[in-house]
Design a protein around this nucleic acid. Structure first.
Length: 914
RNA sequence: GGGCUCUUAGCUCAGUUGGUUAGAGCGCAUCGUUGACAUCGAUGAGGUCACUGGUUCGAAUCCAGUAGAGCCCACCA
C-alpha cells in the first residue's frame, strides 16, 4: 500500500508574541513591504492555515476545501495565478472565518514536456546532450533541477498571502502520487478502459512525442492549394490519356497515396471508379474508389487518399481496406518509402515535389489558399498525423458519469454557461492518448517479456504496478501529465489509502480555474472523481476570465507585454494587488489589465491605514507600542448618537450584502460593497462627523464605537487585504497572543442594532450638507468663510429630526449659524435649494449674483417639471395604474408629490428674487 | 460549418430574477495646505445603454433580426 502522507495532527497555533505592529504610524503613507513579510511568517509558523481531519471527523466542523491548480514546476508566478489565487484565498479566508475547517491544498505539477525541455536546454548550454547521457542520468539532472528551482513559484505565492496548509503540499511525481497514477492505470486496464491502439496520432516532430487533441491548436495560415494530374492507366499499366485532377495542400504526402476517391454520386467520375491511376512521383498505381466523405464541390471533386498522413483518409482507408503507407520519420523527414525524397525534411520535400510535378507537366495550377494547420500548443511545431502505437483511455464510460453530475446539479458552474461548454466536449469525446515519448513523467506500468536476444514480445505484456520479475522490461514511455493531475483532488489526500484526510476533506468544495484548462483538467478531474471514488471532487466550479494586456492581447514573452505580479506587489503591495484583482474579477469576462489599476488598490489600503489613525492615535499604549486599554462600548444602541446608529445600520447591511455576494462568487460586487462602506460611509461621513474638534480628545464612547466598527471593517476586508488588516488589528486593543485577525470570526452585526429611521434621517442630513456645499461651490465661497443657512422643514416632526442633527450639518457644511424651523421667514438675497421636504436658504449677501441664481433656479425648475411630466403621464395611463403592482404605483405617486412640492418651493424663491 | 460571449460616460467596466431621474474607478474642470489621508477632500461636466423590430402598463435588462469585436469546437483535402 502507498504511504499515507504525513500530516501533523496537532494544530500548532503560535503562543509566542506576535510581531509588533507599528503602533503609532508617523508617516502619512502605508508601507506594505514592512508589514507583509512579518505577518506571513507569523501566520505560517503559527499554524493559522492548518486544517485538521479530526476537527471534521470528531469535532463536527464542516470542511471547506479548495484544491489549488498545481502550477508547473517550471513556472513563475504570472497574473493568471495572481488572479486565481486571490479568488481562492479570498474564499478560503472567508470560509475559515465563518467557522469552516478550511483547507487549501497546494502543490506542484511535474509538467512533462515543459520541464524536460527546460532541463534539456539548460544541459545543452553546458554541452551536455540528453540522448548521449541516457535516461537515468538525465532524470537525475531533472530531479536536481526540481530540487533547486521547484518551489520558487510556491514561495512567490506566499508573497501574495496564499493561506494554504503547506503541510499538505504535494508534487505530482512524489511517491504517493506516482503510486496512485500507476494503480489508476492498472485499474483502468483491468476494467477494459485502457487499451493499446495503432492509430493516427498528433505527432510533434520537435518534441518527438504524441500529444492529445486538446494540446493541438488549429491555426489558419496562408498557404497554397495545388491541383495535380493523376493519369488514369489501363490494366497493363499504360496511360489511357485520361486523368483525374486532384487538389491538395500537402503534395509532400503524395508518395503515400494509396487511392484516389470520388463521391459515389458524382457523375463526372462514375465511369472511372474501379480503374486505376498512377501516383505522381512514384510509379505506383492505385485504385479509384467512391466514398461519401468526398466533397463534390471542393477542388475538382476528387481526393487523394493518404491513410498514413491524414485522419479522414485513415477512416476512408479502413472502409475500403486500403494499405496505410507511412513515409515520414519521427523527426519529420521523409523515409525510404518516399523514394527520391527520402531524407528530406517535410517542408523541403514539399517544395521539391511541387517543382518536380511542374516539370513533369502534372501540376495543373497553384492557388493561394488559407490552410488550417495543426500546431503543438507547447512547441509550436506543425503537427504531423502519424501512425503510431499508443496507449489510450476509453473515455465514454467516464464521460457519462461526469455528465450526469453536472446534469443533476451535483456540480454547479459559475458562470453557468461553462457547463454548456463542458457538456459539448463530453458529449462528443474522443479517446485519450495517454502515452508520451518522453523521459520525465510517470513510467507506464506495462511490462514486456524479453528473450535471450533482447527481443521484446509486444503481444504478451503484463500490466502491473510492480515488475513481474526477471525477464521483463518496462514500457519506455511515460504518461501524459494530465494523467496524474486528474487525480489531484483525492491523490493529494492520500488516496488510494483510506486516510483521515481523505475522509474529512473529500469531496472538496470549490475549484477555481481559468477556462483554458476546462477540458484538459477540470472535466477530467470530475471523471476521475466520479469513476474512482464515486463522488465528485467538488461541488462548485468557478471559472475566472483570463488576464489580457491593456489592449486585450494575451500576455506573452514574445510580445513582452506581461505584467509581473511580483513587480506589482513590490510597487503597490500585495493587498493592493489582491484587492484590485478582486474588483476586476466580475462574472468570468476576460480582464484587460492596465498596471495603473493597482493604484486604486494601493489607495484603498492607504485609506484604511489612515482611517485607523483618526481614532487609533488616542488609544493608550505601552512602551512596546501595544494598546493597553480595551475600549468597549457601554451605551446601548438606543443611547447612541444618530450618526452612530446610522453607521451600525449601514455596517449590518453591508456585512449582510458582502456575505451574500461572496457566497455567490460575486467577488467584484463584494469588493465594491466593502469599499463603499469603508470609504464613503465610514471615512467620508462618520469619521468627519465624529472627529474631535481641533485640540480636543474624542470621548471614550466615541473611541469605543469607532474601534468596534473599525474592527469589523478589518474582518470584512481581511479576505481581500490580509496584511494591512492584520497589522491594524493589533493596534486597536490589547490581544492575547494567537488572537490574530486571520483566526477571528466573520463579522455578524446584531440585527437588533439597526435603525431604519435613523438611517433615513442621516440620509437627510447628508442631503442637506451636500446641498449647502453645492451652493458654496456654485458661488465660490471659500471654506474659510462661514455662512449661515436656514432649513425650512415641512413639519414640526422633521424639523425636530433635523434639529437633533444640527451639529453634523453645521460642522460638515461649514456653517456659522443654522436656523431650523417649520415656518421660516426667507432671507433676502439667498440661494435656495430643495432637499426632499426641506427648503434650504443660504444667505449670500454680497456674494450672490441675482441673475445667475435666477438662471440656476429656472434650470432646476425646468428639470423637475420635465421629470414631473413623465411621472404624471405614467400615472394618467390607465393601463399602468390598473396593471402595475400597487407598490410601484404608490411609489410613482410619491414621486409626483415630492416633485410638485419642490417645484412650488423653488418657484416661490424665484419670485422672491424679483 | 456549428456553438458561445461581448457592444452602457473620453478610457476600463458594474448593473442579481424587467419597475432609479442608468452607476463606479480612472481621466477631465473648478475650488481647497490649520492635526487621518494630496495615494486626499468638496463640487461639477459627461450616456437617445450598437442598430431595427417585437413582447409588456413598463425594456440597458426578455425575444427575433442586423452590424461590428472576440473566443471555443469541427475531417473540407
Amino acid at each position: 500500500m502507498p504511504e499515507t502522507p504525513e500530516i501533523p495532527r496537532d494544530r500548532n497555533r503560535q503562543t509566542d508574541t506576535p510581531p509588533t505592529p507599528d503602533p503609532a504610524p508617523t508617516g502619512s503613507a502605508y508601507e506594505p513591504a514592512e508589514v507583509e513579510e512579518k505577518w506571513y511568517r507569523y501566520w505560517e509558523a503559527g499554524g493559522f492555515f492548518d486544517a485538521e481531519p479530526d476537527a471534521v471527523l470528531e469535532g463536527g466542523k464542516a470542511p471547506f476545501v479548495i484544491p489549488m491548480p498545481p502550477p508547473n514546476v517550471t513556472g513563475r508566478l504570472h497574473m493568471g495565478h495572481a488572479l486565481q489565487d486571490t479568488v481562492q484565498d479570498l474564499l478560503v479566508r472567508f470560509k475559515r472565518m465563518q467557522g469552516f475547517e478550511a483547507l487549501w491544498i497546494p502543490g506542484i505539477d511535474h509538467a512533462g514536456i515543459a520541464t524536460q525541455n527546460v532541463v534539456e536546454r539548460t544541459l545543452k548550454k553546458d554541452g551536455v546532450d540528453r540522448k548521449a547521457i541516457g535516461r537515468e542520468a538525465f532524470l537525475e539532472h531533472v530531479w536536481a533541477w526540481k530540487e533547486e528551482y521547484g518551489d520558487i513559484i510556491l514561495q512567490q505565492k506566499r508573497r501574495l498571502g496564499d493561506s494554504c496548509d503547506w503541510r499538505y503540499e504535494r508534487f505530482t511525481m512524489d511517491d504517493g502520487l506516482s503510486r496512485a497514477v500507476q494503480e489508476v492505470f492498472v485499474t483502468l486496464y483491468e476494467q477494459g478502459l485502457v487499451y493499446r491502439g495503432d492509430y493516427l496520432v498528433n505527432w510533434d516532430p520537435d518534441n518527438q512525442t504524441v500529444i492529445s487533441n486538446e494540446e493541438v491548436d488549429n491555426v489558419e495560415r496562408p498557404g497554397s492549394l495545388w491541383t495535380v494530374r493523376y493519369p488514369v492507366v489501363d490494366d497493363e499499366g499504360n496511360e489511357t490519356g485520361e486523368a483525374i485532377q486532384i487538389a491538395t495542400t500537402r503534395p509532400e504526402t503524395i508518395p503515400a497515396d494509396t487511392a484516389v476517391a470520388v463521391h459515389p454520386e458524382d457523375e463526372r467520375f462514375t465511369a472511372l471508379v474501379g480503374k486505376r491511376v498512377k501516383v505522381p512521383t512514384t510509379g505506383r498505381t492505385v485504385p479509384i474508389i467512391a466514398d461519401d466523405a468526398v466533397k463534390m464541390d471542393f477542388g475538382q471533386g476528387a481526393l487523394k487518399v493518404t491513410p498514413g498522413h491524414s485522419e479522414v483518409d485513415f477512416e476512408i482507408g479502413k472502409r475500403h481496406d486500403l494499405e496505410t503507407l507511412s513515409i515520414m520519420n519521427l523527426d519529420g523527414t521523409l523515409n525510404e518509402l518516399a523514394g527520391a525524397y527520402a531524407g528530406l525534411d517535410r517542408a523541403e520535400a514539399k517544395t521539391r515535389i511541387v517543382t518536380d510535378l511542374a516539370e513533369a507537366g502534372l501540376l495543373v495550377k497553384t492557388e493561394d489558399y488559407t490552410v488550417t494547420t495543426p500546431i503543438s500548443s507547447r512547441s509550436k511545431a506543425v503537427i504531423e498525423p502519424l501512425l503510431s502505437p499508443q496507449w489510450y483511455v476509453a473515455m465514454e464510460p467516464l464521460a457519462k458519469k461526469a455528465l450526469a453530475v453536472v446534469d443533476d446539479g451535483t456540480i454547479t458552474f459559475h458562470p453557468s454557461r461553462w457547463a454548456n461548454e463542458y457538456r459539448r466536449w463530453l458529449e462528443d469525446i474522443r479517446d485519450w492518448p495517454i502515452s508520451r515519448q518522453l523521459w520525465w513523467g510517470h513510467r507506464i506500468p506495462v511490462w514486456y517479456p524479453v528473450d535471450e536476444t533482447g527481443e521484446r514480445d509486444e503481444e504478451n505484456f503484463v500490466v502491473s504496478v510492480d515488475s513481474p520479475g526477471e525477464g521483463y522490461v518496462q514500457d519506455e514511455d511515460v504518461l501524459d501529465t494530465w494523467f496524474s493531475s486528474w487525480l489531484w483532488p483525492f491523490a493529494t489526500l492520500g488516496w488510494p489509502g483510506q486516510t483521515d484526510a481523505l475522509k474529512a476533506f473529500y469531496p472538496g468544495s470549490v475549484l477555481v480555474s481559468g477556462y483554458d484548462i476546462l477540458f484538459f483538467w477540470i472535466a477530467r478531474m470530475i471523471m476521475a472523481g466520479t469513476h474512482f471514488l464515486d463522488e465528485v471532487p467538488y461541488t462548485d466550479v468557478f471559472i475566472t476570465g483570463m488576464i489580457k494586456d491593456k489592449q486585450g492581447r494575451w500576455m506573452s514573452k514574445s510580445l513582452g507585454n506581461g505584467i509581473d505580479p511580483l513587480d506589482m506587489i513590490e510597487q503597490y503591495g500585495a493587498d493592493a494587488v489582491r484587492y484590485t484583482l478582486g474588483v476586476l474579477c466580475a462574472q468570468g469576462q476576460d480582464i484587460k489589465l492596465d498596471p495603473a489599476k493597482f493604484e486604486g488598490g494601493r489607495n484603498f489600503a492607504n485609506k484604511i491605514w489612515n482611517a485607523s489613525r483618526v481614532f487609533g492615535r488616542f488609544v493608550e499604549r505601552d512602551d512596546a507600542g501595544r494598546p493597553t486599554e480595551d475600549l468597549r462600548r457601554e451605551r446601548g444602541f438606543g443611547e447612541l448618537e444618530l450618526a452612530e446608529r446610522w453607521l451600525l445600520t449601514r455596517l449590518h447591511d453591508t456585512v449582510e450584502a458582502v456575505t451574500e455576494a461572496l457566497g455567490a462568487y460575486r467577488i467584484s460586487e463584494a469588493a465594491h460593497l466593502a469599499y463603499d462602506f469603508v470609504w464613503r460611509d465610514f471615512c467620508d461621513w462618520y469619521l468627519e462627523v465624529s472627529k474631535a474638534p481641533f485640540g480636543e480628545t474624542p470621548s471614550r464612547e466615541t473611541l469605543a464605537l469607532s474601534t468596534e466598527v473599525f474592527e469589523q471593517i478589518l474582518q470584512l476586508l481581511h479576505p481581500f487585504m490580509p496584511f494591512v488588516t492584520e497589522e491594524l488589528w493589533w493596534t486597536l486593543r490589547p490581544r492575547e497572543a494567537g488572537d490574530a485577525l486571520v483566526a477571528s470570526s466573520w463579522p455578524a452585526p446584531d440585527p437588533a442594532e439597526t435603525d431604519a429611521e435613523a438611517a433615513q434621517t442621516f440620509a437627510t442630513v447628508q442631503d442637506l450638507v451636500t446641498a449647502i456645499r453645492q451652493v458654496r461651490a456654485q458661488y465660490n465661497v471659500p471654506p474659510s468663510q462661514d455662512v449661515r443657512a436656514l432649513v425650512g422643514a415641512g413639519d414640526a416632526a422633521t424639523a425636530a429630526a433635523v434639529e437633533g442633527a444640527r451639529e453634523y450639518v453645521e460642522r460638515l457644511a461649514g456653517l456659522s449659524d443654522l436656523t431650523i424651523g417649520a415656518d421660516l421667514e426667507k432671507p433676502s438675497a439667498s440661494a435656495a435649494v430643495v432637499v426632499g421636504a426641506h427648503v434650504v436658504y443660504v444667505p449670500l449677501e454680497g456674494m450672490i449674483d441675482l441673475d445667475v441664481e435666477r438662471q440656476r433656479l429656472q434650470k432646476e425648475i425646468d428639470g423637475k417639471r420635465g421629470f414631473l411630466a413623465g411621472v404624471e403621464k405614467k400615472l394618467q395611463n390607465e393601463a399602468f395604474v390598473s396593471r402595475a403592482p400597487e407598490a410601484v404605483v404608490a411609489k410613482e405617486r410619491q414621486k409626483a408629490e415630492d416633485a410638485k412640492a419642490e417645484i412650488t418651493a423653488l418657484e416661490a424663491n424665484l419670485a422672491d428674487l424679483g
